[in-house]
Simulated scan of single mutants.
Amino acid sequence: MTTELAHDPRPIFARSLDQAGKQVAAVRPDELSNRTPCAEYDVRALLGHMVSVLHKLARVGTGGDASDLPDVIDGIADDGWAGAFARARSEAEQVWADDGQLDRMIELPWATLSGRDVLDAYSHEFTAHSWDLAHATERLAELDPDLATRALEAFSKFAPPDDRSEQGPFSPAVPVPDDADIHTRLAAYLGRRP
């Protein structure tokens, strides 16, 4: 009798954080006020959001409630974002290194999911935000197409275009040419305007 091994989302999560971390580290202080495809965020606010999400992941991973943490962390020095991201990443990865976290049910503001599904979902969020940063700072060539393919497949399942409005986390999908690259298709699916 063979037993199928359960999916471990941590390697993909680490890859998505590697990609995001490279984008964060590449941001120059003069780019912090650049607009991003996320309508409510400039680059500084998007960086603050990404760091905050990592803190929230650490909190929920220990069974805590992350609702009191801000959606955007501020007060980081212009040249301190790479360090803030690296510290928050380390904190989150330490919490999620415990195999027991993967099968525990985690309450998020928008769903209750297994730890495996939580890390999958946030891998895709960091993939999308890496594109947002790369677009805002003109570093699109540095993105991993496999991560974008995975994210597009996942978002297609849990964020169908019919259930969207301008008020939700994802705007209605935007049409793109059939030959658009995978990052452009992901961004357009999420309602960004590449």
Rank of each mutant, 00 (worst) to 15 (best):
E142I: 09
H129C: 10
G80T: 03
L102G: 05
D103G: 15
L108Y: 06
P37M: 02
D98A: 13
L119C: 05
L140R: 11
N34P: 00
D132L: 09
T62Y: 11
G75P: 03
L152H: 00
H49R: 01
V53A: 11
Q94T: 14
R116N: 09
S114D: 06
G115R: 01
A39E: 12
V53G: 08
V72R: 01
D78P: 11
L47C: 12
L57M: 11
G63D: 03
S52Q: 00
D144N: 10
H124R: 12
R28I: 10
A148Y: 01
V24K: 03
P29L: 06
R89H: 12
A134W: 02
R150H: 13
A148V: 04
A154H: 10
S67F: 06
T112N: 14
R28L: 15
V51L: 06
E125H: 08
L133I: 07
S90H: 12
A141G: 15
A111D: 10
G100Q: 11
H55T: 11
S130D: 06
A92M: 02
L147P: 07
D71C: 07
L152N: 00
P70I: 03
D132C: 10
L113T: 02
D65R: 05
H124C: 13
K22R: 15
Y122H: 13
K157Q: 14
E40A: 15
T149Y: 05
A134L: 07
F158R: 03
S52G: 11
S67T: 13
W110Y: 14
D99R: 12
C38Y: 01
P37C: 05
S90T: 12
L69A: 04
G100V: 11
K22L: 14
D65N: 14
L46N: 01
H49S: 04
S52N: 00
A84Y: 01
H55C: 12
D103E: 13
R87Y: 13
W96F: 08
T137D: 09
V43H: 04
T36R: 00
T137H: 07
A66W: 01
T127L: 04
A92T: 03
G75K: 01
E91N: 14
D78R: 08
V51R: 00
V24C: 09
A128N: 05
L133T: 00
D117F: 08
P37S: 06
I73C: 09
A82D: 06
S156C: 10
L69E: 03
G75E: 01
L140W: 03
M50S: 15
E107N: 14
L47R: 03
G80V: 03
V24Q: 05
F155Y: 08
A159Q: 09
E125D: 15
E153I: 10
T137Q: 08
I73V: 12
L113C: 06
V95K: 02
H55L: 12
G63Y: 01
R35C: 07
V95N: 03
R104W: 09
I76G: 08
E93A: 13
R150F: 13
S156Y: 07
A159I: 12
D30I: 04
G64M: 10
L133W: 00
G80A: 04
A151W: 01
A39H: 07
E31Y: 08
F158K: 02
T62V: 13
Q94N: 15
R104M: 12
R59C: 15
A121D: 07
A92N: 02
A45Q: 14
A154F: 11
A58D: 05
